[in-house]
Amino acid sequence: MTLRPDVLAAILGMALATYLCRAGGYALLRATRPPRFVEAMLQHLPGCIFIAFLVPTLASGGPAFWVAAGVTVATQAAFGRLALSIAMGVAALWLIGGAMPA
């Protein structure tokens, strides 16, 4: 159970940077009344963040990923059970024999 000072400093630096990211966006919004355009953007941000995150991942994964993604979304739309949708998506990818890009 060692705790080296250089490792601790790196961890604290990472923790501080990450907390600034977590709290900074909201702190900025709270401190300054944002223009209407920014308010309108915030309504659209959540979905766009996930799409922007998922599309490059799926694109580099190839057709097996697209099928697995389709299975996941279809299962969620049909049954509305998150755990089931995730399991179905992983199972689909497993069956097709696709592999995550390293």
């Binding site: 080296r4 400093a9 630096g13 990472m14 923790a15 940077a17 990211c21 909201y26 941000l45």
Partner: peptide, 30 residues
């Protein structure tokens, strides 16, 4: 020894995506 500056910058850049998330959660955080 541990890359203090490198690890801190990596965390800052990669977790920058959380800043707009916090802002978008204003309806509950307010």
């Amino acid at each position: 020894p541990a890359p203090i500056l490198g690890a801190t910058l990596a965390a800052l850049v990669i977790n920058l995506r959380m800043a707009p998330m916090g802002a978008a959660l204003a309806p509950v955080l307010d």
